[in-house]
């Protein structure tokens, strides 16, 4: 019973078609992204599914999962607000921005807001050094950049997302 395959037959076929037929292993990372799409982390029971699809061991899949920072092994917020605080951004005030934002949200860096929606993280350079402060939003299977931020701007983004979540909850 390959749940992942059952849920995303077309996506998986498309992913596999991107690599030579005898190199299914290359599909591991795209498949991990796919497995993470729904819940924001890779549920451990999908590892066996990916192992089956790619023909490599679950242990090897796990080693890939553990190496890369965009994959999450544990549940976190629905959205990750990942703020670059690396050197160039820090020179442009991103550390203070992170601190204030965390205060406003009532969390510490690395923590998730009480409503379970947002995990705020400091991350390394995102290739947006000239538009600091900035963050990337990882969630709902997407990654989006928000640049030239101020705490107010970011809070507005957060509010909009909260609203969206509320709407979804209301619509069941």
């Amino acid at each position: 019973m390959n749940k992942l395959l059952k849920k995303y037959p077309n996506e998986i076929e498309k992913i596999l078609s991107r690599y030579p037929a005898d190199q299914t292993r290359s599909a591991v990372m795209p498949l991990l992204f796919l497995a993470q799409r729904e819940e924001g982390f890779v549920p451990s029971d999908t590892l066996a599914d990916i192992a089956e699809i790619t023909g490599i061991s679950e242990t090897d899949i796990t080693s890939v999962l553990g190496f890369y920072t965009l994959f999450h092994e544990q549940p976190g917020g629905r959205y990750y607000i990942q703020i670059c605080t690396d050197l160039p951004c820090a020179l442009r005030g991103s550390e203070e921005y992170l601190e204030t934002l965390c205060q406003k949200l009532g969390v510490k860096e690395g923590e998730t807001t009480a409503d379970g929606l947002f995990t705020v993280e400091a991350v390394k350079c995102l290739a947006a050094c000239h538009r600091a402060p900035m963050f990337q939003l990882q969630g709902d299977g997407e990654i989006k950049y928000y640049e030239d931020q101020s705490v107010e701007k970011t809070l507005a983004v957060i509010e909009a997302l909260r609203e969206k979540a509320k709407q979804e909850a209301a619509n069941g």
């Binding site: 990372m29 795209p30 991990l32 992204f33 190496f67 890369y68 920072t69 994959f71 350079c125």
Partner: peptide, 10 residues
């Protein structure tokens, strides 16, 4: 041509 996404590793 195909794109391939990494996942966070310099």
């Amino acid at each position: 041509l195909r794109t391939h996404l990494g996942a966070g590793a310099y």
